[in-house]
Nucleic acid binder design. Structure first.
Lengths: 325, 325
DNA sequence: CGCCGATCATACGTAGAAAGTATCGCGGTG
DNA sequence: CACCGCGATACTTTCTACGTATGATCGGCG
């Protein structure tokens, strides 16, 4: 019959040690004195040691009692902390959010979203990993990520278990070195691009973008085939600055300010695949819910689909018992 | 109705998280499934959060449940540690022993006693302070010490509340520089001493010794009055080495080996006040009891009074309930 | 598509434990 | 020596955790 020590025993022992008097301790606990005597006797029987010295001048803990009480206080602290932490976790105030994202998302939607999220949930640990959209989708279905920000709708095994919503549209622009003939121009055409050496994201890294581009250059894909590829926008811009070629990327590239490159629109404006946010449809994590709230407040540009989906994911965490207050 | 979370609830929640199945968890707890359901529901009501997701594929903790379980495990660890630590404290295996002692005790009885005590009770914190016998007695009655090792029976307010037992006898010897005429002699007489400049412990530091010496030199105390005084044996020996005079001290001084001094007996052998060990008569500390056990085993030289007193102080820490085993 | 098995929740009676009331025993005190 | 404060004990009452029986729900399978 091991482990019969209950939290009540600890609370009673602590009250007794505080008041050094059975009667007053019992009163402070809202019970009568005899039950307190009985419960203290029960703990002492459980522990196998006398925990209090009953003297005519008061009740004092023995050496064993002192050691016991130290641990008892810590145990009760842990128990109350357990309830508090459970509440915080349920409200999404603590926990972990693992996010995979493509580099270009770091330029526009993520700084605002993550900043506000960190502000409202400072105790949520963020695990941020830059990766390609297919990698992120795979990690999401595998349970290695909680949210993914990428381009294109996730494909592959388990993709149907993901919810994906658009969080940002943009279009294709070009970036060139200031020494390039395009420098200074507000816009260039696709025909002019076809004659240039191109720098773009790798097709296997961002298949949605590559497929999109291929459809634009349908007439002559030789420029695309010969393109230098890279896995992140900073590298594309850096290579363009070296005049390796003409960089192609999302309009949010303009947010990167450096003196050795020139950005110009490509006409006609060609809309890139939307930036999408994905998460598992069956994920009920409150941290995710809190994050989606922030996303909803910050990314209402693309479509009402966001609100619709996120409203659908309103937490069903009702508790059967009495609602406090 | 706050704080209704009981240790049982924690144990049940942890078992449920382990088995991910109400029926098996209940079986592992030795109860039926419905009570487990009821108890889990009770915790969830107490905490105000749903802690487990009941899915067709098993029972899994929610985010709140995970946070709760982490704390719950720690709380249970503290509770079981409380019992263990109480037992250890009751057996005197943990705790604190504050000891005051005179420097000369550090030469003979303390190294053996403290060494064996540390060996048998490695987790007891020792607080050792060198001080004069009267200081130690006062600190003892004030509750600032647990044991005192000194010479002479404690006097002063509260001394009657102390138990004092002899733990070592010795006699007076002299120590001189190797350049002193006494060097090389096996023994000298009190008459010879009377003509020398003396070095001895300060009368206000060790009144028992001083009174003893005064009775010996009753015929002529001028040498005593003119004596250089010091509060510890090492200084007496050091001063003797400088040929400041003839040092007087306990025979256990011989345990200090240094080449520049010579020890010689003083005839007739004059027995010094016994080394005494004192503690509060009402002190029921198991650490003290354990220490007294070691003392009893190591200091059976002086008298049977030690055994007698310590047997009287056999712990009355019986526990009313069932004795384990 | 409907039946069956598994699983958890609900209902209800029971037993045990904790709380309440009354009283006793023990020390210290005037 | 009688009194009083305090904790322990005796006994009753109340509450609650447990057990048995049963219901509701969801997948799986024929």
């Amino acid at each position: 019959m091991i482990g019969g020590v209950e939290a009540r025993h600890l609370r009673y022992a602590i009250a007794l040690a505080e008041h050094q008097h059975f009667g007053r301790a019992a009163a402070s606990l809202g019970i009568a004195q005899p039950p307190l005597s009985a419960q203290i006797a029960a703990v002492e029987r459980e522990v196998g040691q006398r925990l209090f010295d009953r003297t005519p001048r008061g009740v004092f803990p023995t050496a064993a009692g002192t050691a016991f009480l130290n641990r008892a206080r810590r145990a009760l602290d842990e128990i109350s902390a357990a309830s508090v932490e459970a509440g915080r976790a349920a409200r999404g105030e603590t926990g972990l959010l693992r996010m995979g994202f493509i580099g270009s998302a770091l330029l526009d939607p993520l700084p605002g979203v993550l900043g506000r999220f960190r502000g409202s949930r400072p105790d949520v640990r963020l695990d941020l990993r830059e990766m390609s959209s297919p990698e992120a989708a795979a990690a999401l279905v595998a349970g290695d990520l909680d949210v993914a920000v990428g381009r294109g709708n996730p494909r592959g095994a388990g993709a149907e278990r993901l919810v994906t919503v658009p969080i940002g549209a943009d279009h294709l622009i070009a970036v060139v070195a200031t020494s390039h003939p395009f420098a200074g121009r507000a816009e260039i055409t696709f025909e002019q691009l076809a004659a240039e050496r191109l720098i773009m994201s790798a097709p296997d890294q961002e298949p949605a973008v590559a497929a999109h581009l291929r459809s634009v250059f349908a007439a002559d894909t030789t420029a695309l085939e010969a393109a230098t590829t890279s896995r992140d926008v900073h590298t594309i811009i850096g290579l363009a600055a070296c005049d390796v070629g003409v960089g192609l990327g999302p309009a949010r590239m303009r947010l990167i300010t450096r003196g050795d490159v020139w950005f110009c629109d490509v006409t006609p404006h060609f809309r890139l695949p939307d930036l999408q946010l994905s998460f598992r449809a069956d994920d009920t994590s409150p941290v995710l819910a809190a994050f989606l709230d922030v996303v909803r407040a910050n990314c209402r540009d693309v479509g009402s689909r966001l609100d619709e989906v996120l409203a659908l994911h309103a937490r069903r965490s009702a508790v059967p018992g009495t609602t406090p207050g």
